[in-house]
Design a protein around this nucleic acid. Structure first.
Lengths: 109, 109
DNA sequence: CTTCACTACTTAGCGTTACTATATACCAGT
DNA sequence: ACTGGTATATAGTAACGCTAAGTAGTGAAG
């Protein structure tokens, strides 16, 4: 992972995961796969699991343990109302930053 | 500053400052003022100066000391070729992330 | 002449986050 | 037994923005 991307993911990766979780609960391994499919090809598994622990502790998701046919039990995360609120705020923060940056990019040309 | 914004600025603030510097050299206090005018109203001075030290050490900017009529001498930073290259990469990284996020936002609705 | 306000830069210590590396565990096929 | 895919956990590290406090120069107000 590039240094720039690593730093830029700070603060956005949590939002990305919350967004992935809207409407469709998922477990860690699945989320990692989803991220890789969506172009975040180099995100380490450990990063995702640590993030999931964090958002669980913050109370943004509900967790349910379910058996898997193919391995150890899965921890399925689903967005709760507090998580939805956090996601809303995330989009607001993102919009602000995004608009400022697009403005800057325009000015630079 | 909100927690989310603080985290999101990691990795982007450097790019923002590099972008501000394109074409028009500036000194720290001036950059802080510019940022505040552009909506980043709560960015601490210390943050900016620390960032400037960093990008100088990374060799992304050239520095010139100039007397001020109103206070201590100014350190004027100008983007050099390595800084321009870094800024290019920054925009690439930003574009990638930005596109993924806009896609996610669309899907969520 | 001293106090205040504005300009201008510096730095130590802190909290948060993503990464690296490693470990554990379950199951299927060879 | 061994390999490979599925699935989770965690200790240690580095990077970065924030807080807080300090130094220094100039000019105006009292």
């Amino acid at each position: 992972m590039g240094r720039q991307m690593t730093e830029m993911l700070k603060g956005t990766l949590e939002g990305i995961v919350l967004a992935l979780l809207t409407g469709k609960p998922a477990y860690g391994y699945e989320i990692t796969t989803l991220l890789r499919e969506q172009g975040f090809s180099e995100i380490a598994e450990g990063t995702v699991y640590a993030l999931l622990v964090r958002i669980e502790q913050k109370g943004l998701v509900d967790v349910e343990k379910r058996p898997s046919e193919k391995g150890p039990p899965r921890k399925v995360y689903s967005l709760n109302s507090q998580g939805e609120k956090e996601l809303d705020e995330f989009w607001n923060t993102w919009s602000f930053l995004s608009e400022r940056l697009e403005q800057l990019r325009k000015d630079g040309k």
